[in-house]
Write a protein that binds this DNA or RNA. Structure first.
Length: 471
RNA sequence: UGCCUGGUAGCUCAGUGGUAGAGCAGGUGACUGUUAAUCACUUGGUCGUAGGUUCGAUCCCUACCCGGGCAGCCA
């Protein structure tokens, strides 16, 4: 790895980082652009190993020179040659070819020409866009951060739990679910009462794609103490925004013997770890984003790394919003949910910093969140938290969970949930219950924050949004 | 789902109530250690779909389809 061999393929990344010239090197990749001169041709070769390409010189006297005419933008090629210091400006190393071969041509219909394309157009060619500078960089960062997620938790003694993708829990309150069925939709089996007989379905009951692994995660936190999940999640909501997708990846740690404070500490450390890791391991790609996507990217990332996040209770937040002198499209009142405009004001204008809002009104939060003790009549709160970041809004949502059986049952009653469906969840409170807490981080939203890319469709390889499931 | 906005050449866009242009890509040629190379010439479009208004619609109106933005829902 990282070696230059005359026989084995060398990655462009390793060639560019070479310490010394090499008499023989072998490269394979795709042509980004070709410039022909009278006596030679210049070919920029990219293989996705890094942002930059490697300049290949093919002399017109080379027996293989006829191949160069076929090496248009997008073609795949292989090159044997010498790695030498460049005679031209703009790059340290270049390869003088001794043998040159086109493996797969790309004719004039190749859509990714060497010019600016809109993100909208590139989405329509999602099978080719990873070959562009921007998307190559985005998906290298995505890969690296997925690794960093595991690294962060594994180094802290967390165990990775694979929670189910198909679930029968149909009321977790996290959103509308996709139905999973093998029934014949044209002619489903029907019972005596003419209703569809779900007992005849594959699993013997109604099943769905998961909206969260949290409840199953809690089971494992009650055994392995510190766990996390990292997998695909599905929401059947008709959301048409730049930060919602029907299929996205979520990271959900769940920690036994942990309260809301510990949860907020973990969330902050986690976000900072991911940013630090991207800066360290994806420096060239981040510089590209800073240059072409978001001029303020580096300043923002540094700022987030250096500053402690602001923590602000929901009640304080409401007071700040009420006193701001702003006119709100959605009125500010204790008991109402904070709207995007409110969250944006807090994190972008008031605090100008990632902000964790905690202790939300009980009535607007999920049944499993822990009821805070000693709250005023009519102002009951739960130990919930949302981490808001400038530009994106909510990136993390979490809470301390209700570990007391009687309080949990009261919460379920409040939300009109059937205890029978949650018998195993209630059992966790019957047998060895412990205070515990966790959160969910939207992986794509984190990627948007780290890359500056403004649309969730552009940080996931093949986006699934309402009306679109191509590729 | 609601509101707003757009759909003109392969791509990025301009344009006008009298049936259309530029840049890039493509083609031809010139030139050059070039670097989104440069220069000259050149190919290329039933102006999203269906109706309507009008002597006449790419332009105005309506509906629909598709893209995008914002909001709600949330991660």
């Amino acid at each position: 790895m990282g070696q230059i061999s005359p026989m084995l393929r060398t990655l462009v990344k390793d060639a560019l980082n070479a310490a010394a010239p090499a008499n023989a090197i072998f490269l394979q990749g795709w042509v980004r652009t070709r410039r022909d001169a009278k006596a030679l041709s210049f070919i920029e070769l990219n293989d996705g190993s890094c942002l930059k390409g490697l300049q290949v010189i093919v002399d017109a006297t080379l027996p293989d020179y006829a191949e160069v005419a076929r090496a248009n933008t997008g073609a795949s090629v292989e090159v044997h040659g010498k790695l030498v210091e460049s005679k031209g400006q703009g790059q340290k190393w270049e390869v003088v070819a001794t043998a040159f071969k086109v493996l797969g041509e790309a004719d004039a219909t190749y859509p990714l020409q060497k010019k600016g394309h809109t993100l909208e157009f590139l989405r329509e060619i999602a099978h080719l866009r990873p070959r562009s500078n921007l998307f190559g960089a985005v998906f290298r960062v995505r890969s690296r951060l997925a690794y960093a997620v595991h690294q962060f938790f594994q180094e802290r003694g967390f165990h990775y739990v694979h929670t189910p993708i198909i679930t029968a829990s149909d009321a977790e309150g996290a959103g509308d679910m996709f139905r999973v069925t093998t029934l014949d939709l044209e002619n489903p089996p029907r019972g005596e009462d003419k209703h569809v007989d779900n007992a005849k379905d594959f699993f013997g009951k109604k099943t769905f794609l998961t909206v969260s692994g949290q409840l199953e995660g809690e089971i494992f936190a009650h055994a392995l103490s510190n766990i996390y999940t990292f997998g695909p999640t599905f929401r059947a909501e008709n959301s048409n925004t730049s930060r919602h997708a029907a299929e996205f990846w979520m990271i959900e740690p769940e920690v036994a013997f942990c309260d809301l404070q510990g949860n907020m500490d973990l969330a902050e450390a986690f976000v900072k770890h991911l940013i630090r890791d991207a800066k360290e391991h994806c420096a060239a790609d981040l510089e590209f984003f800073a240059k072409f996507v978001d001029k303020d990217l580096m300043t923002r990332l540094d700022f987030v790394l250096e500053k402690p996040f602001v923590r602000c209770s929901y009640t304080e937040a409401v007071e700040i919003l009420a006193k701001s002198g702003k006119t709100w499209e959605h009125p500010v009142a204790w008991g109402a949910n904070l709207q995007a405009e409110h969250e944006r004001f807090l994190t972008e204008e008031h605090f100008k910093c990632p902000t964790t809002v905690y202790n939300y009104p009980r009535a607007i939060k999920a049944f499993y969140m822990r009821q805070n003790d000693g709250t005023a009549e009519g102002r009951e709160t739960v130990a919930a938290m949302d981490l808001l970041v400038p530009g994106i809004g909510e990136i993390i949502g979490g809470s301390q969970r209700e570990e007391r059986l009687d309080k949990l049952r009261a919460g379920m009653a409040l939300h009109h949930l059937d205890e029978k469906a949650y018998w195993w969840y209630l059992d966790l409170r019957r047998y060895g219950s412990v205070p515990h807490a966790g959160f969910g981080l939207g992986f794509e939203r984190m990627l948007m924050f780290v890359t500056g890319v403004g649309n969730i469709r552009d940080v996931i390889p093949f986006a699934r949004t309402p009306g679109t499931a191509d590729f």
